[in-house]
Design a binder for these strands. Structure first.
Lengths: 216, 216
DNA sequence: CGGGCGATTGATTGCCTTCAAACGTGGTGG
DNA sequence: CCACCACGTTTGAAGGCAATCAATCGCCCG
């Protein structure tokens, strides 16, 4: 019984102050689309396990990854009726999806829900601005170092991170090419800032060296 | 009497639905700081005339301009207690500043105020994401063309725009150097996409050519 | 008329991209 | 169980685009 309740509790998006929106759990395969740009925004999402990328495409097909969403992150909540970006699973991923109408209802019933929604959006905005700083004013090595440090808190166990995403994903997040990202990793390994036991597994050997590298 | 009321009405920030926050008008000289990063966020602002740039600096001093705020635009409203970016007047500028506590009060009294706040933040987020696409995936000419088109609706009279900002500002907004921006303008003039009667005055001669140029 | 600042133009450098090839690993079928 | 294939990654060589360095121009203001 308490187990049932615990499971039920997990299929929600928590807005704090005891406000939980109930939704349904959903699985997505690697590279499967969760929603597309210009599609009606019917649901909001929370990552349960795995990882999600949100992205936009330029008219000639170049891809810019806007964010990586990790377990616990909420995404897809815009005030717009239509998604302004698309979202895909980076790897096999579980999400909870909640009808947007439930969020709208909660927001009109309880001011704290709107407030929480606002705070989530502000957080996204700060992240986007930090991202703009990286894209506009940093060199390749600096971008990759900043990437590792930015996500080291999130998918880390000690100093070891397991990257769920490919080099192509990192490249499209940082505005670089696959090759340049790979070279930056190799360079960091040669300078003993990191270890690369495998391409997706990074060990931060010298965090302060990374901090210095990142310092655009 | 009616004139007095009209003037008073202008010293407000309008949240829609009849919600107006009263503030005080303020003038800033060219390049004068309005607020700085990490300063307590005591006020929110609306541009009355002139133009404002918001920006962040990397640790070694490189500047990234995040947005240009034009008359009518509201800026400086974050949920954070502290500004995460700084703001300066691009040219002699008038703003209305409203105590943040007034906004917080309005938001806790009226759900529509929070909702409006949320919508403004979402708009900022969309702009930031569009900006990321430009910074991450476009070449120099494409960036400058996108810049002209993006702002052509705002400070335009017909096909003529008066840029309030310097080449340095444009460069720091687009993640380029002054020289590259200048060369892009010259190139556009040579290909008859624009005219440049003076460095701050641009005439859009061939809008579809610009659209094509921008198409990353 | 002279000074200063912003903008333009030119020459060169350097970093990242592009093109190309080899490597390694995980998965599949023989 | 091993061979083979596909795909992601790494590495190398060459080229291109924007940054840098440097000089001139034009304009506003004193």
């Amino acid at each position: 019984m308490s187990l049932e309740r615990a499971n039920a509790a997990e299929d929600t998006i928590d807005l704090g102050a005891g406000l939980c929106l109930h939704g349904t759990r959903m699985r997505f395969d690697r590279n499967e689309e969760i929603f597309g740009e210009d599609e009606p925004a019917e649901y909001i999402y929370r990552v349960v396990s795995g990882a999600v990328r949100t992205m936009r495409f330029s008219s000639d097909g170049r891809r810019q990854i806007l964010t990586f969403q990790l377990p616990g992150d909420v995404f897809g909540i815009e005030t717009d009726e239509v998604h302004t970006f698309s979202a895909e699973a980076v790897c096999p991923t579980e999400v909870v999806m909640v009808r947007r109408s439930l969020l709208e209802k909660a927001a009109s019933d309880d001011a704290r829900a709107t407030r929480r929604w606002l705070e989530l959006t502000c957080q996204d905005l700060r992240n986007a601005q930090e991202h703009a700083l990286i894209l506009g004013r940093k060199g390749a090595g600096e971008r990759v170092a900043a990437f590792l440090l930015r996500f080291s808190d999130r998918f880390t166990r000690g100093q070891e991170l397991d990257l769920p995403m490919s080099r192509a994903d990192i490249a499209d997040y940082l505005g670089l090419t696959i090759e340049t990202v790979s070279r930056s990793f190799s360079e960091m390994e040669r300078t003993a800032a990191i270890d690369l036991p495998s391409s997706r597994h990074v060990v931060l050997r010298n965090r302060s060296a990374l901090m210095q590298l990142q310092a655009a």
